[in-house]
Amino acid sequence: MTSHATPRRGATYELQRGYRLMMVPAILAVGIFAIVPLAGMFGLAFSDYHLIRGTNWDFGFQNFAKMLSDKRLMNSIYVMAALSFFGVALQVLIGSAVAVGLQKITGKWRVGRILFLLPYAVPHVAVALIWLSLFTPTLSPINAFFDLFGITVPAFLTSQWGAITAIVIADTWTNFPFAMLIIMAALQGISPDLEEAAAIDGATRVKTFIYITLPLLAPALLMVTLFRFIDSLKHFPMIFVMTKGGPGRSTQATNFYAYVQTFQNSNVAYGAAIAVMLFLMAALISYYVAKLNQRVTT
């Protein structure tokens, strides 16, 4: 980092005060509308607030104790892990592949990249409905198309792994463009000289990619992965619309389970406790993102 210029002492003080003043509105805005609800969430998580059983406002760790022996919660974490892992992996893979591919496309065909961006703009509820119809064999044009050739496409949504696959595909469809955008950006930041130099030194394309391009892309890839991973903790509309958590409970990810506890089972306090757990997980991951970003920007 470059050293700060130090004119007169008084001027420096003035300057730093100026900087701090510029931050005040942002701190106020975030403080009121974000911190208050979050504080409320933590409060509820330690309470016994239940809509029909009645509430004594006993505060304690009872909800967190319950979580330890809650098999459905364990199951939901497992589902969430599967959805997040496969979803994020596919998004990053497809996003990178398209970004690399689009780099080679020049001239008027560049307009075509808009086709890859389209899915990013469709609202999630609509994404879920569109894919629900595509995965329902009796409605899906894909099934009808393959039927023409006598090929039967299996039903996805009636088995645990099929349903998880379906949700992962829908989620990937709408979110891979985000990965694509960031990786395209990173690719542009890589000087072509480096790759050319490697080629002149006799490296194959594959070797160039592995030893030159990939290490330079690594921060971007990591950033995308972590961003998408944290977002994937909030999985909801896809599950809600496509499977309602089924078959059985096999696609009830943690966020969905918190919703069931809060709204269906009226156990607001327990739902909040689960949300607190998710929040702490997000805090842990965003800690690493922040660390990573610190290294990148300085």
Binding site: P37, L38, F279, A282
Partner: peptide, 12 residues
């Protein structure tokens, strides 16, 4: 931007 909404709907 990462807090899970289910938890803070009611306080919000």
């Amino acid at each position: 931007r990462m807090a899970p909404p289910v938890g803070f709907v009611i306080p919000l």
